[in-house]
């Protein structure tokens, strides 16, 4: 409480206590900008930034998983350089209506045996052996399979000449093969062996110039490889392996 009240004080208090001066132009904009830089709640601009960051994060995450999945399904290039270890040999025997097409040959021929050369690709040799034992314990009436004796697992030559085989002398081989592949091979070598009766039947049906001799072929096309593998699995089921 002020003890003394001077007349000059009273005059100034009355006239200047609520004295008003118009604020300068542009002051509100400066205040608003300064308040936004302080501890104001989220403005719409900040919300947009958050949404943009979330969108970018989700896109990057999706892209990463997509790349990862693609990389996992893609075949490593160095696996192809592994040579015969990475190859799966499909030894089929049967009728081949179109000699130039490995897929059709596999479709129409009967499987005599599959030799997995790359156990790394399968990773399921134990399971294959079990299925083989089951198949032997419950043999089905398959004359072709009965004719095929088992041979030791070995790397097969690339051509018939190297193998010393001729189309008339079928090479028969029976092994167990996995039902599925953890890592599908980059290429498969298909060796088609055919019985003399079917060979004679095939050569009589096919045109002389279009006929290709049976033998070992290497399939590089990825789609064809998958087709052949599917056919092999199908034939394996068909013959009860």
């Amino acid at each position: 409480m002020q003890p003394d009240k001077h007349p000059i004080d009273e005059v100034f208090r009355k006239k200047l206590k609520h004295y008003q001066v118009p604020p300068p132009a542009g002051a509100w904009e400066r205040i608003r900008r300064g308040a936004a830089g302080g501890k104001q709640p989220f403005t719409s601009g900040k919300k947009h930034w958050i949404w943009a960051l979330l969108l970018m994060g989700s896109l990057m995450l999706g892209g990463y998983y997509a790349f990862k999945g693609e990389h996992a399904t893609a075949l490593p290039t160095d696996s192809m350089a592994m040579g015969t270890e990475q190859e799966s040999l499909l030894n089929t025997s049967g009728k081949s209506s179109a000699a130039g097409s490995e897929v059709k040959a596999a479709e129409e021929s009967k499987v005599s045996g599959l030799v997995p050369l790359a156990e790394e690709n399968t990773g399921q040799t134990k399971r294959a052996a079990e299925t083989k034992q089951q198949a032997e314990a419950t043999p089905k009436a398959n004359p072709i399979r009965k004719e095929v004796p088992q041979q030791p697992q070995q790397a097969l030559p690339e051509t018939d000449k190297e193998a010393g085989n001729s189309p008339e002398e079928p090479m028969q081989q029976t092994t167990a093969a996995p039902d599925r592949y953890e890592r599908p091979p980059a290429r498969v070598r298909v060796q088609v062996s055919i019985s003399p009766e079917r060979e004679q039947q095939a050569t009589s049906n096919a045109k002389p110039e279009g006929h290709k001799k049976m033998g070992t072929r290497i399939i590089w096309n990825k789609q064809k490889v998958e087709k052949v593998l599917n056919q092999v699995l199908y034939l394996k089921k068909d013959i009860g392996q």
Binding site: L16, H18, Y19, Q20, V21, P22, P23, P24, A27, W28, I31, R32, A35
Partner: peptide
Amino acid sequence: AMSALYERYAAKMMGVCRR
């Protein structure tokens, strides 16, 4: 609301500062 408060008290507070 900030703008409304500014409109209400800006002239008075500017007077204070000018004193």
